[in-house]
């Protein structure tokens, strides 16, 4: 089979951006869910709608990376958007966490 990925750097960029996004969103949601009694179930309920659009965008970026399509800068736009989203999530989490832990 060999390596199916056409563009290694694009794939790596997608993985990095995707992992940061998953980690940041899920950490925040886990913080929220930890205040409840059934936090494992609630974590899924709270995080799925927030992760779903993120996953769709990541899938698109992965498609570009797998088939090596540049598509007139479409890939860079997607990565920039996902990076922006990550920064936003992290900033929001930074601002909101103190309220989550204050008893």
């Amino acid at each position: 089979m060999g390596n199916l990925i056409k563009d290694q750097m694009m794939f790596l960029a997608t993985i990095v951006v995707g992992s940061i996004g998953f980690a940041s969103i899920l950490t925040m949601v886990a913080g929220i869910a930890s205040h409840t009694d059934q936090n494992a179930t609630l974590m899924a309920i709270l995080s799925i709608p927030l992760l779903f659009p993120f996953i769709i965008t990541l899938m698109k970026a992965t498609e570009y990376a797998l088939f090596g399509l540049e598509n007139g800068g479409g890939f860079t736009d997607l990565i920039a958007l996902l990076m922006g989203l990550n920064v936003m999530v992290i900033v929001m989490a930074y601002l909101l966490f103190p309220y989550l832990w204050r008893e």
Binding site: M28, I32, A33, H35, T36, D37, Q38, L42, I45, L46, M92, A93, L96, Y99, L100, R102
Partner: peptide, 22 residues
């Protein structure tokens, strides 16, 4: 669902406000 699963009213308000903003 989040609001329904927290018993204490003040905690419910606090946590759900955080989720709402996020």
């Amino acid at each position: 669902v989040l609001r329904g699963s927290i018993e204490d009213n003040e905690k419910k308000a606090q946590v759900s406000a955080v989720y709402n903003i996020f």
